[in-house]
Design a protein around this nucleic acid. Structure first.
Length: 593
RNA sequence: GGUCCGUUAGCUCAAUUGAAUAGAGCAUCUGACUACGGAUCAGAAGGUUGCAGGUUUGAAUCCUGCACGGAUCACCA
């Protein structure tokens, strides 16, 4: 039972007894009292005025007086305009702290046998180039979202659909065949995904050169010139052979994709993300066809004279959407329908979440509609967890402009930067220990910075700012955590016992307990709104509050055993909530740094 | 042009979905140290929440219009 629930129940009862009418529960929302007023929780009484038929002040007074008499948790109250500020008694706060302290999983709700299953799709890379900064935001959001959902009692399946076929893959393969001289990750020492990416870039460069020549020679536009390019013809021919199952092409494709997967695995591991089930587009791209053809009979789709198949979505405010080309082959949408079908067969999915960039908003609007029409029960309320672009402070990063920030390079830079920033702190450590902490801090900085922002918004990533040990940053949280652990270690060494009667908390300590108590609500809210940013910003507020608290008291030198024990318990609880909270963001917390 | 999304302090971001005087950090300025970890803390300054209307006891938040920025409207994925 949270303290908010206790108060809102009591208010509900008060209104009923005082005015003889029930009030809708959702209109009673206790919220933290603003710091310039006295009290812990505030009730807004405006919604009750229709029932009480009295002025706001009078209504608040009467409810406050009733609560003081009948609700043991309420110590004092005061009224400002239509706001009823309630002070919870210190003894009650102490109980709250004890509750937090005794629950190792505080704030977390574990799934049970009846829990529904949520599938989260994220990452979804192409196998023709390495992961970049945009993928990093995607991966961190997807992973964190899965953690948050799991913490809210859902069964979660993390999935990844690998885009491993198509013309873009053939481009890399062709370039390798033509100009690769048999290069392998082993022979070049390059990570497989980077090696393949380099050949893709090589192809693009040569194609651009050819295209330009043809444009001038034949006086045609860029699109047409590209179509006439012999390089493109070769790539298309390779795709045709791939689709026909040509053993030679398939063998090359398998070999090169494996290099890429090995490379991706390294990057995923470094980022600390993982998947429960990986789907490959080469396995699923034919799957949607039957469903689409079946849709024709149901009247959901129609066939044009040239044989192509479409869905008319104009009644839903959208356009006509192509689903099968005139030659019978699938498009992206058809494949996503097929993948959905497979997943539905594989898992009892109650809810599907796609973590995909906001440039595909329209695609998912259409997908939701089509899946619904085709009879998937979760089609209608599938969630496209849409996120904005990441920009660097020195300019946009788009793959076409060739200014992509590579994920591996970025991780390296973050770790190097953490090492440099904290060099003097590491002087008394072994090299291994210093390296490990630099890794944790560098990645923590990256993760926190990318996750604290509202996902829908385009954001500006500033590596320098992210690794600052002050302010709203990952390293600040990690530092706070490490310092608390250090204090607790010292307390243990000194044999300071918490096994005494705890003192009642003062105002400052109460404020920290209240913040800690909020954690449960924050996790639930983050689960409801799919918001890692909510958790991130809460963690920062908690760390900040603890720092203020910490600065005011000499915890270890405190002479009153009860007060000291209370403060140690508060420190311990703060460290644990911090660790749990940042854990939901995929961050690691160092014991020392 | 149609649709969707965004616009909050000099900068980077919040605001628990409609509540009190819109909050943090960075940067700037002023203070506080024989420090249980100062990688800290306290304070100041910084705002017509893009603009104009509307609804409401109450609007950054909801509605309408406009401006600016982004995305999308492929027989690409």
């Amino acid at each position: 039972m949270t303290i908010e629930k206790i108060i809102s129940d009591a208010v509900s009862k008060a209104v009923k007894e005082l005015y003889g009418a029930a009030v809708a529960p959702e209109t009673i929302v206790p919220q933290a009292t603003k710091k310039e007023f006295e009290g812990h929780l505030t009730i807004v009484v405006f919604p009750f005025l229709k029932i009480s038929r009295k002025a706001p002040e009078a209504t608040a007074q009467e409810i406050g007086a009733w609560l003081e008499r009948n609700c043991p948790a309420v110590g004092r109250y005061n009224v400002v305009k239509g706001f009823l500020n309630i002070s919870i008694s210190p003894a009650f706060w102490l109980d709250v702290l004890r509750q937090i302290d005794s629950d190792p999983d505080y704030g977390i709700k574990r799934p049970d046998a009846d829990s529904d299953l949520v599938m989260v799709e994220y990452s979804s890379p192409n196998t023709n180039k390495p992961l970049h900064l945009g993928h990093v935001r995607n991966n961190l959001l997807g992973y964190s979202l899965a953690c948050i959902l799991a913490a809210n009692g859902h069964k979660v399946v993390k999935t990844n659909i690998v885009n491993d076929r198509g013309i873009h893959i053939c481009k890399s393969m062709l370039a390798w065949q033509k100009w690769g001289n048999g290069a392998t990750p082993e022979s070049t020492g390059k990570k497989g995904d980077h090696l393949i990416g380099d050949f893709y870039v090589e192809f693009s460069k040569r194609l651009a050169r050819d295209t330009k020549e043809i444009m001038e020679r034949d006086n045609v536009d860029k699109e047409e010139a590209e179509r006439r390019s012999p390089l493109m013809a070769e790539a298309r021919e390779m795709l045709r052979r791939w689709e026909a199952g040509d053993p030679e092409v398939r063998a090359l494709w398998k070999r090169m994709n494996q290099w890429v997967y090995d490379g991706f695995d390294v990057t995923y591991r470094r980022l600390g993300v993982d998947f429960d089930k990986i789907y490959y587009e080469s396995d699923t791209y034919l799957e949607g066809k039957d469903l689409v053809l079946g849709g024709i009979e149901k009247g959901i789709m129609y066939r044009k004279d040239d044989g192509s198949v479409w869905a008319d979505l104009t009644a839903d405010g959208l356009d006509h959407k192509l689903l099968l080309r005139a030659d019978g082959t699938s498009v992206y949408m058809t494949q996503d329908i097929g993948t959905a079908k497979l997943r539905y067969q594989d898992f009892p999915i109650a809810k599907m979440i796609y973590v995909v960039g906001n440039e595909q908003n329209y695609h998912f609007q259409v997908l939701s509609l089509l899946l619904d029409k085709l009879g998937f029960k979760w089609g209608k309320d599938l969630t496209h967890f849409s996120y904005g672009m990441v920009e660097l402070h020195n300019g946009k990063m788009k793959s076409r402009e060739g200014t992509v920030v590579d994920a591996d390079d970025l991780i390296d830079a973050m770790i190097a930067s953490a090492k440099e920033t904290a060099a003097d702190r590491f002087s008394d450590m072994t090299t291994e220990e210093a390296d490990e902490i630099a890794r944790v801090v560098g990645l923590g900085a990256l993760k926190y910075f990318l996750l604290k922002v509202d996902p829908r918004k385009n954001m500006l990533f500033n590596p320098e700012e992210s690794i600052d040990f002050n302010g709203n940053t990952g390293p600040f949280l990690q530092y706070t955590y490490a310092r608390i652990r250090s204090v607790l270690r010292r307390a243990g060494e000194a044999g300071l016992s918490r096994d005494v009667e705890l003192a009642l908390p003062n105002e400052k300590e109460t404020a920290l307990i209240q913040k800690l108590a909020d954690f449960r609500g924050v996790v639930a809210e983050a689960g409801r709104r799919y918001s890692p940013a909510l958790v991130a910003n809460y963690c920062y507020e908690l760390a900040k509050k603890y720092n203020q608290f910490y600065h005011d008291y000499s915890i270890l030198r405190e002479e009153d055993a009860g007060v000291r024990a209370l403060r140690l318990m508060l420190s311990d609880a703060t460290a644990r909530v911090l660790r749990t909270g940042t854990g939901l963001l995929g961050m690691e917390m160092p014991e020392r740094m």
